[in-house]
Design a binder for these strands. Structure first.
Lengths: 290, 290
DNA sequence: TCCATCATGATAAATTTTTCACAATTCTGT
DNA sequence: ACAGAATTGTGAAAAATTTATCATGATGGA
């Protein structure tokens, strides 16, 4: 009988390196919705993980159990113990860390930010923004400031694969007036501006607005002054137990936008993506022979 | 097929009056430590409740199941559903958008990713990593790949304020071997590498490891090959309903790290931050937050 | 008190599940 | 490119679990 102080989940993760390809595949499947999947019949688990039945049997033995039934018995025992233990420890995010640990406090705050932000968002406006960003006829400019340029670049890198005709502008650089010359009516400018709102970014937005560009703004709950010019703006809650603000919620919105735009342009993107896949495969091959 | 909105526990309690003596005995045994006992073999359940095997079989049918295995299947399904949403009784995050809207689907996935990731993280390892990153005696290198360099830069920008003596390396650039010359034993290298793991990044990590640097790795659930070299690694779940992966969870970890490191160095950081504020004010590059 | 009805349990049959032995495949180092 | 080792899968045997059958005991009303 294996060590009782470690959960099966812990032990799987610990052994993850010693496992073979199929076993690792299985391990992830078990962890995926733990412990439910492990409590079903062996064959079902094998099917879900797309491995053969004996692979499952072999791995449970590797984990130190005599057989699958013994493995299940301990899984049930874990479940018993967990249900019995006080609920206080139950609602923390990082198991084994006190609820006052930064990991738990921070995560609480971020989840709360997400909930608030999504609760206030206007889905129609979001869809409209995605349509604009997806429109390949319009040139797309993506603008970020001192910190937010990382978010801007994240959006830019993905859009680069999805559509042509786009530019990343860093408002802190002094080259942006050059880009502005090319902006014409109907172009789309996505601007990131969160508190410690930046003068440069505001100027840029004003001028783009004057030239008749569509402005989409990602800002915080207090809203950058740019929001008065913007056609569509999204404000995220960014407060966390830190001297800094959180960009996690804004990133969530950006990623959702990427996914939505991708879907809108799927027919054309597909080819671009597959090309990219090929490149990755080549990289893999390259690694194999070195 | 029984009603899906009611849990088995609910249904047993509802039927409690219609049950016979032995069945009631069994029912209480099931509820005693729910749902663990129901997930074992039928015979074990019968023994624990001190009733005969056929009694169990009969009652399960009385509850509307075709047989014991079907009963267990639903029990597992309940467990799955319960594990998924300790927070998210929210079916829809964005009010006014259908639950199938990308905003809701994506947010669901990200919350789930966060829950999984935090559940598997080792708080002690996290604290240790923060200590290393906070140690100003060690030079800090931050390394990112094609996409992840945005995350790396996000960490870099904040660390720049918190501590001196750090470098941002982009593994896709060809200048990184240059930086490698300066790495010495005891230095700390924070590496970002998520799937579509990059050969350049691996090479860099190997060489830094060979020079005796401490390696801290941020990767995904399948883990970059670098994790075998890394002193500490963190794996985030990154799957979302998109052709791309999500960086949101990794960003959450980074931000938590920033905040923790900030607190560790607070005395010295405070001065740096104020100095920075002054510089911003003087150059009038940034507006003061009101 | 006796019979009819229902609940319960023992046993056996049927089915499912697990384990084992061996073959095919993939990977690794020369 | 090859041989040897390790990994993975296939199919059959063994073990277990579940279901069905039937006998026994209990209960309650005439």
């Amino acid at each position: 009988m294996p060590d009782a102080t470690l959960t099966i989940s812990d032990r799987i993760q610990q052994k993850l390196d010693d496992l073979t390809r199929a076993e690792r595949q299985l391990a992830h499947s078990i962890l995926e919705n733990y412990p439910a999947s492990g409590l079903g019949p062996l064959a079902a688990l094998a099917r879900d993980a797309q491995v053969s039945v004996p692979t499952v049997a072999r791995m449970v033995q590797k984990l130190g159990f005599k057989g699958y039934p013994e493995f299940q018995a301990e899984l049930r025992e874990e479940l018993r113990a967990k249900a019995k233990s006080p609920i206080a420890k139950h609602d923390t995010w990082a198991d084994g860390a006190p609820s006052g640990h930064m990991l738990n406090r921070f995560t609480d705050a971020v989840i709360d930010n997400i909930r608030h932000t999504l609760g206030q968002i206007n889905p129609a406006a979001f869809d409209e923004a995605c349509d604009l960003v997806a429109d390949k006829a319009r040139h797309l400019y993506i603008v970020g400031g001192r910190i937010t340029h990382t978010l801007a670049e994240y959006l830019f890198l993905h859009m680069q694969v999805i559509r042509p005709n786009l530019t990343h502008i860093q408002s802190t650089s002094n080259t942006w007036p050059h880009h502005l010359l090319d902006i014409s009516e109907g172009d789309v400018v996505v601007v990131f501006d969160v508190r410690r709102y930046e003068n440069n970014t505001l100027k840029l937005a004003e001028m783009a607005h004057a030239k008749g560009a569509k402005l989409i703004l990602f800002t915080d709950q207090w809203r950058s002054p740019i929001h008065q010019l913007a056609d569509i703006s999204f404000s995220s809650r960014i407060v966390v137990p830190s001297a800094w603000d959180s960009a996690a919620t804004t990133l969530l919105l950006i990623e959702t936008m990427i996914s939505t735009v991708q879907n809108l342009n799927w027919d054309e993107t597909k080819a671009r993506m597959e090309e990219l896949e090929d490149m990755f495969d080549q990289t893999k091959l390259f690694r194999k022979f070195t």
